[in-house]
Design a protein around this nucleic acid. Structure first.
Lengths: 182, 182
DNA sequence: AGTAAACTAGTACGCGCGTACCAGTTTTTG
DNA sequence: CAAAAACTGGTACGCGCGTACTAGTTTACT
């Protein structure tokens, strides 16, 4: 009975940790990694400041884990939509969140730590989805090519605010180019 | 005589402003926009702290102008190397500086101010270079496509540290795909 | 020559930050 | 039941930051 009866406190702790990560991810999307501070996270999760330092050894760790969570969600989303229509998958997503994701991806380029792992996980996951869409093996150059083109188009859409029609057309073109036998 | 004799002080001021911008750009490359603080810039330029607030209304303005300068340099470099060999142009550049550039590009996506202008100037400048290389008009979809692919490959190289050989091959593939008549 | 404008440089204010600390409570363990 | 471990939450420290202020110096204009 003492066992699994009412493990209330630990359950609460797990919930709290998750709440902190959710808050961090949300802040990340809203204002980039600069917006993710202990205080901001705690306040958003409606928890005391000290909770953040208790559950995470440092701010970097908190950010890294939030990044990982964001990557998970993003990959899951991409897989489930199947990307039959790449564009709707792109256009429907929160622009700020995409920005945050990319920002962290770049940030990962500066330090070879955990962030780098998540970054690789993301890019390779995306590439796998694309390869699946194309019906070719994951490391097929055509998949890599299409994925690269998608990145460029994606960024142009998110940052430069390129019109959706142009993006749509470009993506179609890229798919054709990658599909066409060389 | 009073005229252009020894306009020393203004000349010094101009020089100082440039020195501050250079310092800011260098810091930007080293540690991202977070590393660009009034104090850090002043110290690096060997100038008193107050100089930064005198020549620039705010930190944002300083960063924006440094970004513009970085974009100028980058575009000039790309044009002068002609990109006969895209790869050597890519591989020879300072990785950290590229990261800083991209970081600011992303940051521009969050605010529609001056940063956005520079960001557009950069992406369109790059695209123009690519179009020139391909021998097609600037807004030709093929140029856009190749540029997009280049962005993706570029990022993979800078952030993920993808091997140069793979990048080289991918770029060749992209060029072929864009060149081939549709 | 003399007034206004440009420039220099030191210093101070207030704030938010990461993190450490610690006295409490609760839960698990032996 | 007692001791240990997990957890809570309030508070404090020290720091670097953006920016404002001010007194002094130099240069440009009439």
């Amino acid at each position: 009975m003492t066992r699994s009866a009412t493990t209330q406190p630990q359950a609460r702790a797990v919930h709290r940790r998750a709440a902190l990560l959710d808050a961090a991810a949300a802040l990340l999307a809203e204002g980039g990694s600069a917006a993710v501070s202990h205080r901001a996270v705690a306040q958003r999760a409606a928890l005391p400041l000290a909770a953040t330092t208790y559950y995470f050894a440092s701010r970097d760790e908190l950010i890294a884990e939030a990044f990982g969570r964001l990557v998970d969600h993003e990959l899951a989303f991409m897989r489930e939509t199947g990307l039959d229509d790449l564009m709707d998958g792109l256009a429907g997503r929160d622009r700020a969140q995409q920005l945050g994701l990319w920002e962290l991806y770049l940030h990962a380029g500066r330090e070879p730590g955990v962030l780098r792992t998540h970054a690789r996980r993301w890019s390779e996951g995306c590439q796998a989805v694309v390869a699946d869409l194309l019906g070719v093996p994951v490391h097929d150059p055509r998949a890599q090519l299409l994925y690269s083109a998608m990145c460029g188009v994606w960024l142009a859409y998110i940052v430069d605010g390129r019109p959706l029609d142009e993006v749509r057309q470009l993506l179609r073109l890229a798919t054709e180019a990658a599909t066409r036998p060389s």
